[in-house]
């Protein structure tokens, strides 16, 4: 079992408000980790620190063989030029709460953008691969639609295909179903379930406790910028040791 992601003492403040209070985390290849916690507990910020969309104030995140955004050099962490940071970031697929599909590109255009511009694939090659991915998320039939013509669940499935098209080592999901109407949550979770079964390494920030119980190899509960409890889903979700985790779960499940 080799390591995919390792966070070391990650701290992050916005102004005087400390959002992350020194977090450590290890995720192995093939593992599915679900991060739970009440709103404002710092889950999303932590996920955004992992792919360096937010820069930690101290500590660092190691992904797939290198430290995100830095290079150890003579006892200091030297900041990397932006091109090398982007090369690191593309190994992490990111799915956003609000989809962030490119508004004026078709579904297919969204999925081929990264492979063509960043990986330098030819159009035909990129499109063939994109159609496979769209088929996998059940959106091949809408390849020429624009995002504005899709439902939230459809947009999120396209966003997943777009992230997968970069062939990332790890997939990050930032509350992927929180902006969806209740009846659309299932189709997105179904796609994610398929990815998990296929052995994709996934870190999922979510409020879907049922999904975490069923799919996660491990769950982690964050409260007030700290990791309060981590372990197998059946243990953490059914017999939490930490009293604040117990309070959070009883509220979330009621």
């Amino acid at each position: 079992m080799s390591l995919a992601v390792k966070a070391v003492g990650v701290r992050k403040s916005f102004g005087s408000h400390e959002v992350l209070k020194g977090l450590d985390l290890e995720v192995a290849y093939g593992e599915v980790l679900c991060i739970l916690g009440p709103s404002g507990s710092g889950k999303s910020t932590f996920l955004r620190c992992i792919n360096h969309l937010e820069v930690p104030n101290s500590g660092y995140v190691w992904v797939d063989g290198s430290i995100m955004g830095y290079e150890p050099r003579g006892g200091v962490l030297q900041e990397l030029p932006v091109a090398r940071l982007r090369a690191q970031q593309r190994r992490l697929g990111m799915v956003f709460q609000h989809f962030n599909l490119f508004a004026y590109r078709t579904v297919l255009g969204n999925v081929i953008e990264g492979p063509m511009v960043v990986r330098g694939l030819r159009r035909a090659e990129a499109e063939a691969r994109a159609m496979q991915l769209l088929d996998q998320v059940g959106m091949a039939g809408r390849a020429s639609s624009y995002p504005a013509q899709l439902s939230g669940g459809q947009k999120q499935r396209v966003a997943i295909a777009r992230a997968l098209a970069m062939e990332p080592s790890v997939m990050l999901f930032d509350e992927p179903t929180s902006a969806l109407d209740p009846e659309l949550v299932g189709e997105v979770l179904e796609v994610m379930r398929g990815l998990a079964k296929g052995g994709t390494t996934m870190i999922v920030v979510t409020h879907e406790i049922g999904f975490a119980r069923e799919v996660a190899d491990r769950v982690l509960v964050m409260i007030d910028g700290e990791i309060r409890e981590t372990g197998k889903p059946e243990q953490v979700l059914s017999e939490p040791r930490d009293p604040r985790v117990r309070t959070f779960l009883s509220r979330a499940l009621s």
Partner: peptide
């Protein structure tokens, strides 16, 4: 331009 569009481009590895 929506900040999320830029973030999505960054996570795909696109340079500035």
């Amino acid at each position: 331009v929506d900040r999320g569009q830029v973030e999505a481009a960054h996570t795909l590895g696109m340079t500035p």
